[in-house]
Write a protein that binds this DNA or RNA. Structure first.
Lengths: 126, 126
DNA sequence: ACAATAGCTGAATGAATGTTCAATTATTCA
DNA sequence: TGAATAATTGAACATTCATTCAGCTATTGT
């Protein structure tokens, strides 16, 4: 276990030896398909913006319209609308139209779960 | 409930009426402190990059050194090292030195939990 | 039909960010 | 001590991205 193998590969992308070949192969085997990882990265990148986090935080307890969110965050409706589109594309929020007004809410339980887990993480790391 | 209040504010950041003032106030009351939200956004932004997600995915099942990860992802040690630093600063991974080699692993249970929740989300949204 | 309003969109711009390259540090082994 | 190697670092460059601005669509009420 953990034996240094020193299998020099001709892989030009790394200037070193493969130290733990079996572990690397195991990790490669168990890794989700590339596409899932890309979508996961996308999801978390969209989640991970201060404006969008505040929008999600606001929607945790109430369905709100674009104007509500704009006033709450002290930003323009345009800026909020742009961010809501990103959140909608990654299925973090969903919308419901009622006349001229569009109401936004969290899309499913995963969103609040990730929010709460992340918040717990930043509060416990000290 | 949901009565349109039309309280014109002089807030220049929004060119519209406060539609649901009580809901906005409630959301404002319940929102975590600004600093927590900023740190949460930071955490998820760092998490949400395809290279870093793949690193975390690799570390789900084994502790690996920088060189292992570089070979696994087909990238340079330098690039990986830069990303590991970002992951370390947000306490997503931790490291252990053994001679010249530095082993990285996930910092705590939150990280794999967020990973799994996010993956479930992208797989269930169709 | 017309005015008013909520929300959306595209282009532009300035800021943030990932990777590369070269150089440096830290550690082992002979 | 000196060569070799794993890892780190800083600067530079190219790309991505959030917000602003102006204009647009959709809907309501008169």
């Amino acid at each position: 276990m953990n034996v240094q193998l020193f299998n020099h590969t001709n892989d030009t992308t790394c200037d070193c030896c493969v130290i733990h070949k079996q572990l690397v192969n195991k990790a490669r085997r168990l890794m989700p398909e590339e596409n899932s990882l890309l979508e996961l990265a996308d999801l978390l990148r969209i989640f991970g913006d201060s404006t969008r986090v505040r929008i999600i935080s606001a929607l945790l307890h109430a369905e709100l319209c674009v104007c509500d969110i704009a006033v709450l965050l002290g930003m323009t409706k345009s800026a909020i609308s742009h961010q809501l589109r990103a959140l909608r594309q990654t299925k973090l929020v969903k919308r419901r139209k009622a006349g001229k007004i569009v109401y936004y809410s969290l899309d499913d339980e995963h969103v609040s779960s990730i929010f709460k887990l992340g918040l717990a993480h930043v509060r416990e790391r000290k």
